[in-house]
Design a protein around this nucleic acid. Structure first.
Lengths: 148, 148
DNA sequence: AGAAGAGTGGGAAAATGTGGGGAGATGTAG
DNA sequence: CTACATCTCCCCACATTTTCCCACTCTTCT
């Protein structure tokens, strides 16, 4: 169910990012949707998931609400359709790469309904910053500490 | 019931870790789930237990909640399914090994529903640091009374 | 001592990831 | 409108990684 896993990927000089084989198997067509994430990363959606998420946003948006208009600008407007080439790679536009500080070495995170593309250095720093809170949230869920 | 015990294990040059015979007997299928732990170690789950823990998190996750997204990134996304080969070994990915400083000589700790994989040097140091607090916590439970 | 089981190492085939050349499309300036 | 430059996509080739299988040693039990 969904796409999971964390992968080290590289983006070559031509802006091509090759999808790990495990993920290639989960894609039916040749298209994916790429847009800006809420953190310093890009989001990569399967078409059907993108359809669902974006429709939910668009349908719920009020023309007169500044907030929802902002969400549309940030999330829907920058979205672009990317196609997977025969070697299993997608091309990232230089403008999206630059806006999220992506360099050669990146992570691809499977987050279930979508994937996230992070620059390695950016993500390592982010994870470090958030680690204490993450641990606390995990414990709040009961984690594996519950004895059955 | 559950998996108990502390074992010295070695990880060979190809990243293969052989499970002690006592543990092999407790595994029904050929699959285990490997992910990052809260401390400097990896967690190795039995599939059914992983299913329970991860489902609890995923079902409760909101796309816009930073906390639950972080927990997904930290615990669920890095998870990988590993299969046990005919010699009773599992392959650890180099990225997970590196993130937890695992070298050749490691410990495998049975923690009931999951196992933990620690680098020997890292664990010895950790245990040293925590020993005072552990003793105190134990006394807080009522000394020789069982912890449920 | 012999047999069976456990742990370790290594080789070969297959799959995966990466780089680069070149044809075609697109765009720009003269 | 043409010539030139740029960008994109497609294809092939190479190197590395992964996977699978087999062989050997050491311990343990009979």
């Amino acid at each position: 169910m969904g796409i999971w896993g964390q992968f080290n990927i590289t983006i070559d000089d031509k802006g091509r990012m090759s999808l790990p084989a495990k993920i290639r198997g989960k894609i039916q067509g040749d298209n994916l949707i790429l847009t800006k994430g809420t953190e310093k990363c890009l989001w990569l959606y399967l078409p059907e998931e993108w359809e669902r998420v974006s429709r939910q946003l668009i349908d719920g948006a009020s023309v007169f609400s500044l907030n929802t208009q902002d969400v549309l600008r940030r999330f829907i407007a920058p979205a672009e359709e990317v196609s997977v080439d025969k070697a299993g790679r997608v091309k990232l536009s230089s403008s999206l790469m630059k806006s999220m500080d992506l360099n050669r070495d990146c992570y691809l995170l499977g987050m279930g309904e979508r994937m996230e593309i992070w620059d390695e250095a950016v993500y390592d720093r982010f994870e470090e910053e958030r680690s204490a809170e993450v641990k606390q949230t995990w414990e709040g869920y009961g984690g594996s500490e519950t004895v059955s």
